[in-house]
Design a protein around this nucleic acid. Structure first.
Length: 519
RNA sequence: GGGUGCGUAGCUCAAUGGUAGAGCAGUGGCCUUUUAAGCCAUUGGUUCAGGGUUCGAGCCCCUGCGCACUCACCA
């Protein structure tokens, strides 16, 4: 449940501060009155917790009685006070360690501070020596302890139990709404959530490494664009006040990246955010991260090969394996991907031969004859796209390329020689989900111009998805663009696959949620 | 945007239309090796919001808000 929040300033009325928070705020005042600073400016841990524990384990393994003295910092995750003895666990993102405080080592005053001022969730710094307790747990025998940052609001986790080295959480924060709206609390309390985002970072790093090694250059192109393009999607609109100019948030990077091939880069790529003003779902967020690359002198077959290699490389680099589990399925990225011709795959799945239906009306008639649902008035390409989404995409659990797409939904792809209705384009699927989209890029400026004009006609009644004519892009292409293969992949979806998450919100730190009214 | 479901203490969850509860956290006491939470005691609620039905509503009805699932649109 959401509550409007307020600030607690001394002498003012606390607004919406709950009982637990009032107690902790009172402790802050008491600490300051006692000459203790609850938010000191600097911390000076000598090691990360896991580093210290590892050093201790290594010293043990070496058989020595080496005394490891260290200062560790972290968040208090458990606290057990027993008068003249106390135990706590602290955690810092690298690991966790137990603290033991004995009155004869730290003195009565510190034991009293611990009792009166310290709570779960506080950041603390402890100096001491590492040892093992009677129950054999690696523990810092504390000689001094101080507050680094007092937590006012209690973290929502209840209890952690360590079973065979695995941390089991009892009654942890699990409400998805709270987890997404307060991701900081989710991350603080659920280590497996942190691991998803660590994996995500390894994935993007591996993609860069893979492309950099092959002499692609990473570039950055405009997010604010006067003309949007490169995909069939509705844009977000914004406005530049001083220039009195409406601008769009980009829906793809494509048209800018290909301009760079005109400028004599052999291979360019960009990893960044796209924005699409459309519905949200388990695989759609209004802003999402995309990788696009364009590769001079390549075609869609070379791009297919590179895609296989790249996804395999990323899985190995990020997970240490090329065999992954997704939604109960085992997916083998080691093997070559299945490659299916779109026309043949649709014929097998639906009995409709799209080659025998060269226009909107004939395809709609064929679908009607088979009792397949469709949206009246759709173009041939949109009908095919619908069939693909309904009858093919969900069946592609194992890695699959579907290739040779209808021309009218692919205005930036090059026609297949000898086939005016088809372009050299493929999409890659894993886990029943579209992962990437690529084509042999159209580099004929005259053909490109007529495609823009066709799109303008087809989408006359549908302003928002209409591709506006990009004259500067045409000018760039008319200077000469090398033949090239282009590629786009959703990084969020790749991360879903590699971390076995079933919704895109689990792989986006701050997914878009509807704004709540604060009262 | 449509359909279905859900919303109770800080967290995880109970409660035939009849006094709103439990565990954990919090608070108090005892305790020098605890381990899910040492032991004992105990506080804590605008039941998402607003209407309605009823002697009586957490529960039934209506409206709104949010979330989840799903359909549509899309990557």
């Amino acid at each position: 449940m959401y509550r409007g929040r307020g600030f607690y300033l001394e002498g003012k009325t606390p607004m919406e501060t709950n009982e637990l928070e009032k107690i902790r705020i009172e402790k802050i005042h008491q600490m300051r009155a006692a000459g203790l600073e609850p938010y000191p400016t600097r911390a000076e841990p000598t090691l990360a917790i896991q580093g210290a524990v590892n050093a201790f384990l290594k010293a043990e393994a070496d058989g020595g009685d080496a005394v490891i003295s260290t200062t560790l910092a972290g968040r208090v995750r458990s606290l057990r006070l027993m008068g003249k003895l106390a135990f706590a666990h602290i955690e810092d993102g690298s690991g966790r360690v137990q603290l033991m405080l004995r009155v004869n080592e730290v003195g009565e005053a510190l034991m009293a501070q611990l009792r009166d001022y310290y709570d779960l969730g506080d950041f603390v710094e402890a100096n001491g020596t590492l040892m093992r307790t009677k129950t054999n747990e690696v523990t810092l025998l504390v000689s001094s302890l101080r507050m680094l940052a007092k937590a006012v609001t209690p973290l929502p986790a209840a209890k952690d139990e360590v079973v065979d080295g695995e941390v089991v959480r009892h009654a942890t924060l699990s409400d998805p709404e709270t987890r997404y709206r307060q991701r900081y609390a989710d991350l603080a309390v659920n280590p497996e959530v942190r691991e998803v985002f660590r994996a995500r970072a390894r994935i993007t790093r591996a993609l860069r490494e893979f492309l950099d090694e092959r002499d692609f250059i990473e570039v950055e192109t405009p997010i604010l664009q006067p003309i949007y393009g490169g995909a069939a999607a509705k844009p977000f609109v914004t406005h530049h006040n001083q220039l009195k100019q409406d601008l769009f948030l980009r829906i793809s990077f494509e048209l800018y990246l290909k301009r760079l091939l005109v400028g004599m880069f052999r291979g360019v790529y960009e990893i960044g955010r796209d924005f699409r003003n459309e519905g949200v779902s388990f695989k759609h967020n209004p802003e999402f991260t995309q990788l696009e690359f364009y590769w001079a002198y390549a075609d869609y077959l070379k791009v297919m090969d590179l895609t296989e290699e790249m996804v395999r490389f990323v899985a190995q680099a990020a997970l240490g394996t090329t065999i992954i589990a997704y939604d109960g399925n085992t997916i083998d990225l080691t093997k070559p991907w299945q490659r299916l011709n779109l026309r043949q795959a649709l014929l097998d799945a639906t009995g409709i031969d799209i080659a025998a239906c060269p226009d909107d009306a004939s395809l709609a008639a064929a679908m009607k004859a088979k009792d397949l649902p469709f949206k009246p008035g759709s173009t041939r390409g949109k009908l095919i796209d619908g069939l693909l989404g309904d009858y093919l995409e969900p069946t592609f659990i194992q890695p699959t390329f579907l290739y040779d797409y209808p021309r009218d939904i692919s205005p930036l792809a090059k026609s297949k020689p000898g086939d005016p209705t088809t372009v050299e384009r493929f999409e890659g699927f894993i886990g029943g989900m579209e992962l990437c989209n690529a084509f042999t890029e159209l580099n004929d400026p005259l053909d490109q111009e007529s495609r823009f004009l066709e799109m303008g006609r087809d989408y006359e009644d549908d302003d928002e998805e209409r591709h506006p004519m990009d004259e500067d892009y045409l000018r760039a292409m008319s200077y000469g663009m090398p033949p090239n293969g282009g590629f786009g992949m959703g990084i969020d979806r790749l991360t879903m696959l590699l971390t076995d998450r079933k919704t895109i919100r689990e792989v986006i730190l701050f997914p878009h949620l509807r704004e709540r009214e604060e009262d």
